[in-house]
């Protein structure tokens, strides 16, 4: 190789380095300032007695973490979050699948179904919360009124600790199931039509086709939807904070709400940061578990 070629190659590498980092620079700057720095500073804070009022009794070692692990409210919030995640993920995946299968039958007025089931997803959490708080109202709620018309006793939607989380789940399903519905619908429309034609010739009916073709073909999509839904549900805050404020008696308080409250109403930023990293660890376990599962599947 002549030295001229090497020179040219080197020049090109330098130019590429320059261009590559220059193009990435704007993103990297924001990334460092508003993601890397807060994460690092958050970790630091979690080892301090930092408060919102400015007082800071310096590094406290693992005291915040030790306190959190012995804090019944932390465990209760974590438990509520996991409970919500389980009882919301199941309907959010199954109902989405059912709605998509229904609409994908080739029903007329496609836009109407897509609009009906997806429109709530476009609402801000506060709008959803206003709607449902009003419908759950103990005296004036339309749901109890209609249940009463068919002879069902009024349900204490928001006042009974055993019921409140389910009321949140109902509002959440109404609000966000349209997202999973769209993902399923897109995946179904991607299944090659020949599979169905072949099955029809073999005399397989609609239900058979759904279970022997559609469902298996949706396998990878389902795995992704379930994982994304679990991750989304674990982050629940808005609708709970707005509808029940975590009540009654902390029965619906989520871990994100506990982070928020220790930080902004309890003024204990250091402690709050420590709890948020315990929450992060939970998210990490799910995410890494998912990557591991995917590896195994594709291997």
């Amino acid at each position: 190789m002549s030295s001229a070629v090497i020179e040219r190659r080197k020049a090109k590498t330098n130019k590429n380095d320059l261009h590559g980092w220059a193009f990435s620079a704007p993103f990297i700057i924001f990334f460092l300032l508003f993601l890397v720095w807060p994460i690092l500073y958050g970790i630091y804070m979690s080892f301090t007695g930092q408060t919102l009022t400015g007082a800071n009794n310096g590094l406290v070692g693992f005291a915040n973490y030790a306190e959190a692990f012995g804090d019944p409210d932390m465990w209760r919030s974590l438990g509520n979050t996991v409970y919500f995640t389980v009882i919301s993920t199941i309907p959010l995946v199954l109902i989405a699948l059912g709605l998509a299968a229904l609409v994908n039958m080739g029903l007329p007025a496609q836009w109407l179904w897509r609009f009906s089931f997806f429109a709530p997803f476009l609402l801000a959490s506060t709008v959803v919360s206003l709607f449902f708080t009003w419908m759950y109202n103990p005296q004036l709620g339309i749901i109890n009124e209609m249940l009463g018309n068919v002879g069902i006793a009024p349900v204490p939607w928001l006042n009974d600790p055993a019921v409140a989380m389910w009321s949140i789940v109902i509002a959440t399903v109404w609000w966000t199931v349209g997202f999973n519905f769209l993902l399923y619908l897109a995946a179904m429309q991607n299944i090659p039509q020949q599979h169905y034609e072949a099955a029809s010739i073999d005399g397989a009916g609609g239900w058979r086709q759904f279970f022997s073709i559609t469902l298996p073909q949706l396998g990878p999509t389902t795995v992704l939807i379930v994982i994304l839904q679990i991750l989304a549900s674990l982050k629940v805050f808005d609708q709970i904070y707005q509808i029940t404020a975590g009540g009654p008696g902390g029965a619906t308080r989520s871990i994100v709400q506990y982070v928020f409250e220790t930080g902004f109403t309890g003024y204990r930023l250091g402690y709050s940061a420590a709890i948020s990293f315990i929450f992060f660890a939970l998210i990490m376990i799910v995410s890494v578990g998912q990557i591991f599962l995917n590896r195994k599947r594709s291997a």
Binding site: F34, L35, I39, K235, F260, G263, L269, S276, F279, F280
Partner: peptide, 9 residues
Amino acid sequence: IPPPVLIIP
């Protein structure tokens, strides 16, 4: 990284 982890810092 879940955004709620970032709110305090």
